[in-house]
Structures are given as structure tokens and as C-alpha cells.
Computed example of a mutant assay.
Amino acid sequence: MAGPTTAEHGAHKPPNTGDGSARSPLGGAPRGRLRVPGPRSLLIALAVALLGAATIWVLYGSPWLRAERVRTTGTDELSEREVEAVAAVPLGTPLISVDTDAIEARLRDKLPRVDSVEATRSWPHGIDLKVTERQPVLLLKKGSNYVEVDAKSVRFATVDPLKAPKRVPVLELAADGSPSLKRFGSDRLVAEAVRVRADVPASVAADTRVIAVRSYDAISLELSGDRTVVWGSSEDGAAKARSLVALMKAAPKARHFDVSAPTAPSVSDS
């Protein structure tokens, strides 16, 4: 069989570019030549590199953006000096390198009164600490002092009676002989008392002096004016609150109220 003709040989030869290099059959750039960046591209790359180096130096090496002050807000019982001592902000270091997460962790771990804290950079020289303190909703008797308990059932501070917050009910745990103590433990019973405290209507909460827990389902309130409320368990708290408000309106001079069964509440004068 005859071989390819001269025309066929020529059909497969890459086109000549005119400068001695062969162009790809697909029409791309000439093969065998490297594309050298032009002066403009080199200048742009150099400017980007210099800008990056300058930014790093300004943030980490210059004296302009360093931590020089700490500002604390939101404290009440805690002092600003106490918070800032525990925060241990490394003054004089680059502001960008200050570990704000570590500062927050130290404050939560070492100051139980801190419920939450937010540490933020305040350019060009500051660290701001926004503190939210725990607020007591109950006072648990401990020896001659009281332990403050917050709305999350966290026992966070011990205070003497003279410094105990006013108008915060005292929690009396009198469940020593109750099976509830063995079954649930004291922490659970404290949590149940906190739930009751949250459900007590505002008009009654102001007069509540003591919340007594004798078992899981035997919780009662002692109010001013020698009045008492049998609450029962912490279940159905909203219904019990409504029943209590209705009873007090219907019998304003009564001294004893029972809302342990909110659908069948009762009231008595003695």
C-alpha cells in the first residue's frame, strides 16, 4: 500500500509562527517559550509584598498598637481592680496578640460570681472587659453565713448575714429524713426550689421570706405577715401561681394558702 503523500505530511506539520518557533496545532501559545511577567506585574507583586510586611510590622513590631489600658464595665459586687487583676492582661504587648479567650476563661474559672464576660480589643491601645455578675435568687444557710444561689442553681458566693442581699428569700433544706434526699440529692432539691422561686408571682415574691423544702413534692413558702403557702412540687408552677393570685384576691385576710393541687386550691385563716 502506498505511503502518505507529500501533501499529507505537510498537513500534520505545526504552523510556523514567523519567528522560528512552532505554534501548537490547537492554536495556543508557541511551544518552547516561557512567558515572562512584565514590569507592571512585578511592581504590583512587590507592592503587595511590601504592604503585607508593613502591616505585620505595624501589628506586631511597632509601638503604636500595644495594650496599654484595661477598661471594666458591668461590675457591682466585684471591684474593677479585682477583675483586672484576675484578667492579667499582658500590658505592653502587641494588642493583636492578646488572647481574649484566655482572659475570659480565667475570669470565669477564678471568679465564681462572674456569670459571663466578653473581652474585646479596643483599638489602638485598649482591652475592654464587659462583665455580667450572677444575681442571687435564694440564700442557702451554711453555718452562720449564707450561700448565694443564682437562677441557674449555681452556688457562687458565701456572705455573712450583715452583707446578705435584702429581699432575697432564704432557702431552708429540711429534707434530711426524706427519701427525696437519697433519690435526688441536695443539688436537685435546690434546683427545685429555684424553679419554684421563678414561678412565684411578682406580687407574692416581694413578700416571700423563706422557701422551705422538706421533700421533692413538699415545698412551701413563708410570707410576711405570718402567712404560708403550700406549693407542693415544682410542677405546674404557672397554674399554681394563677391560683395563688386568685385566692389572695378572694381572701385577702387569709393566712394559709394551698395550691399544691392548682385545680382545687384551698385557703384558711388558721
Rank of each mutant, 00 (worst) to 15 (best):
E82F: 12
E82A: 15
E82L: 15
E82I: 12
V83A: 06
V83H: 03
V83N: 07
E84T: 15
E84H: 06
E84W: 01
A85K: 13
A85S: 09
A85R: 14
V86P: 00
V86E: 11
V86R: 12
V86L: 12
V86M: 11
A87Y: 01
A87L: 09
A87Q: 05
A88N: 13
A88S: 15
A88Y: 10
V89W: 09
V89G: 00
V89I: 15
V89S: 06
V89F: 13
V89N: 07
P90V: 02
P90D: 12
L91R: 14
L91H: 05
L91K: 14
L91Q: 11
L91F: 12
G92Q: 13
G92E: 12
T93S: 15
T93V: 12
T93K: 15
T93Y: 11
P94I: 11
L95W: 13
I96A: 14
I96C: 03
I96D: 07
S97L: 06
S97Y: 03
V98Y: 06
V98D: 08
V98M: 09
V98G: 10
D99V: 06
D99F: 07
D99T: 06
T100R: 14
T100V: 15
T100M: 08
T100P: 00
D101A: 14
D101S: 14
D101G: 09
A102S: 08
A102C: 00
A102L: 10
A102E: 10
A102N: 09
A102M: 02
I103N: 05
I103G: 04
I103E: 02
I103T: 05
E104W: 07
E104L: 05
E104I: 06
A105W: 02
R106S: 03
L107Y: 06
L107P: 11
L107K: 03
R108C: 03
D109L: 04
D109V: 01
D109R: 14
D109T: 12
D109W: 02
K110M: 01
K110I: 01
L111D: 01
L111C: 06
L111Y: 02
P112H: 08
P112Q: 04
P112M: 02
R113Q: 13
R113T: 12
R113G: 08
R113M: 09
V114L: 03
V114R: 01
V114G: 02
D115S: 08
D115R: 05
D115E: 04
V117A: 00
V117K: 11
V117L: 09
V117C: 08
V117H: 08
E118S: 10
E118G: 06
E118Q: 09
A119Y: 08
A119I: 05
T120G: 08
T120A: 14
T120P: 06
R121V: 10
R121H: 15
R121Y: 10
R121N: 03
R121K: 14
S122H: 02
S122P: 00
S122I: 06
S122D: 15
W123I: 00
W123C: 08
W123V: 11
W123K: 00
P124F: 05
P124T: 05
P124V: 08
H125S: 10
H125L: 05
H125M: 03
G126I: 11
G126K: 09
G126W: 15
G126Q: 12
